[in-house]
Nucleic acid binder design. Structure first.
Length: 542
DNA sequence: TCGTCTCCCACTTTTGAACAGA
DNA sequence: ATCTGTTCAAAAGTGGGAGACG
């Protein structure tokens, strides 16, 4: 779809030609207002694959590292991948996390996606003030076991189920300068967890009754393309390890959530829900909160409990207050001092995974980068490749080599065959797992303009195309020059989009923008999945 | 039978549109 | 006409519980 989009932009005099094989966006061909848009949206990535995959270049191997240090799960910490010793990260709500971790944190996962609580909230230091960074988060399996809650503890219940391809969540403020990131704590409150393997909202897919470890990646990169080949500074906080569940197992965790999450205020002892229950004769849960956690069962009249609860709530509020993620102007606004214990976390060194080397054309654009330091996104691309190859039902007979820019040929052996059935093109069924390559979808007689990439391109191109096309093509920017007379190719490109459902072309609802604002105050998430599911369509209908 | 999952409920918080006033 | 502050309804987010499912 990248080509279609480019054709469209080109037809409006917005996309200057680029040398063959060079991504036009890399070449600075995209208008600033559009790159600005790109950079303001978060997106979900597909990545990850089983360690059995021949495309596993190391990143997925992290999934099988020794277990992290979680409550009830002794073991060494999951190594991080810190590569810049100057960068320091600390968990802002470390106290709250520790309280949960003490009992074995549980996170509810639902079909439609559920936020994490507590949320990962951290502060960063040691960044270059004027360098742009991406901040990302992913969640990796902590071990290869499935668990069950027996008695009052989690015990291994067998081997883990195959993990879905991992997704990377880009903090919505990305990219931002180091000074901006360091100015205020960074919260991942909007991140959602799901157990829906077919999720198209970009939520992170997890398996119930499995243990996971969130990881933070800080990447110096000015844009998404560069991001793919940049060094990932990876951090993890062992106390943020959690078990994914569809219903809470440990009532102590439940009580902690109720006492700390404002949305669950109704379930507190003095809340109306509990009051109703009590009046109805239902006894409160008998959680033996014999620790620093609030003793909910002692009733709301206990001053000490109230004080403690208040203190905890203040932590929680801060947790949520940092959530202005969807308000770009304030997402890094001044944060109140929570008085929370802050612990500097030095991410333990991780043997940098041998990621898929970047294409030479890209690599030549950046400073010499050791393959071992290349982004997990690259690995994610290879994971997608493996995933797509695994589900590919239609063999590809296209000579990809002939269509692929020569400069990208070096990665060819590691990529699966181009699969026309899994591409995200107007003519193709929208897949759950995007293909690592994509097609123009143009008729064979209509080949791309000279200077455009070939009709089959590696993942990063796909990535951009997914992000931009539906959003940009669905809007008529008033400041754009009128479309010049169109060539057959341009017309074909637009006609192709005419086949899209309306929701893919124009944002639904009364609030959709008729113009393309330079800085939307509340942008809809644009990523390979969000746009494939219109907001008005319930996931249950899928 | 049991463990797990899904859906719905009642509640709280958040968000943004609508409105009034300066 | 523009900006600011307030109000209010809708949307989103919570855990509980009943029932379904394998």
């Amino acid at each position: 779809m990248y080509e279609e989009e480019l054709l469209y932009l080109r037809s409006r005099g917005m996309a200057p030609p680029a040398p063959l094989g060079l991504h036009p966006y890399l070449g600075g061909g995209l208008p600033a207002n559009l790159t600005d848009h790109i950079e303001k949206y978060r997106l979900g990535f597909h990545g990850g694959l089983t360690h059995h995959s021949p495309f596993a270049h190391g990143f997925p191997g992290d999934y099988l590292k020794p277990p992290v240090q979680c409550a009830g799960f002794p073991g060494p910490g999951l190594p991080g991948g810190k590569t810049d010793p100057r960068i320091k990260v600390r968990l802002e709500n470390e106290t709250l996390w520790s309280q949960f971790n003490k009992f074995g944190t549980e996170m509810i996962i639902t079909k439609l996606g559920r936020r994490m609580f507590p949320t990962v909230k951290m502060s960063v230091s040691g960044l270059e003030p004027n360098t742009k960074y991406f901040v990302l988060m992913d969640i990796t399996p902590a071990d290869d076991s499935r668990y069950k809650f027996q008695g009052k503890e989690w015990v291994v219940a067998g081997k883990a189920e195959p993990h879905m391809p991992g997704r990377l969540y880009i903090h919505p403020d990305s990219p931002a300068s180091g000074a901006q990131w360091m100015r205020h704590p960074i919260s991942f409150q909007k991140l959602k967890l799901t157990n829906n393997n077919l999720d198209q909202q970009g939520h992170i897919i997890l398996n119930s009754m499995h243990k996971y470890q969130p990881r933070i990646h800080i990447v110096a990169a000015p844009d998404l393309v560069t991001l793919h080949w940049s060094t990932f500074n990876t951090f993890n906080f062992p106390q943020t390890c959690f078990t994914a569940v569809t219903a809470y197992q440990n009532e102590r965790i439940t009580q902690l959530k109720i006492d700390n999450n404002p949305f669950a205020k109704g379930f507190r002892e003095n809340g109306q829900l509990r009051s109703k229950k009590r009046s109805g004769g239902t006894s409160p849960p008998a959680g033996d909160m014999n620790t620093s956690a609030p003793k909910a069962t002692e009733g709301a009249t206990n001053d000490a409990t109230l004080e403690k609860r208040s203190r905890l709530n203040s932590v929680d509020s801060g947790d949520l207050d940092a959530s202005d993620d969807e308000r770009p102007s304030s997402s890094m606004s001044v944060e109140k001092d929570l008085g929370d214990e802050k612990v500097d976390v030095e991410s333990p060194p991780t043997p940098p995974p041998p990621f898929l080397p970047p294409p030479p054309i890209i690599k030549s654009e950046v400073e010499d980068t050791s393959p071992s330091l290349v982004s997990p996104l690259v690995s994610a691309a290879s994971m997608m490749a493996a995933a797509a190859a695994g589900v590919a039902a239609v063999p590809d007979h296209t000579s990809r080599k002939a269509l692929t820019p020569p400069t990208l040929a070096s990665i060819e052996p590691r990529l699966p065959l181009h699969d026309a059935s899994s591409i995200l093109s107007p003519a193709a069924t929208r897949p759950c797992l995007p293909s690592p390559t994509y097609s123009t979808g143009l008729p064979g007689s209509l080949q791309p303009h000279p200077g455009m990439p070939g009709s089959s391109l590696p993942y990063p191109y796909l990535y951009y195309s997914h992000m931009m096309s539906p959003y940009l093509l669905g809007r008529t920017a008033p400041h754009l020059p009128p479309a010049p007379p169109t060539s057959a190719l341009d017309k074909a490109a637009r006609d192709m989009y005419a086949g899209y459902p309306t929701y893919l072309r124009t944002p639904p609802g009364p609030h959709h923008h008729s113009s393309l604002p330079a800085t939307p105050s509340r942008p809809a998430p644009i990523h390979p999945y969000s746009y494939t599911l219109p907001p008005q369509v319930q996931a249950a209908n899928l």
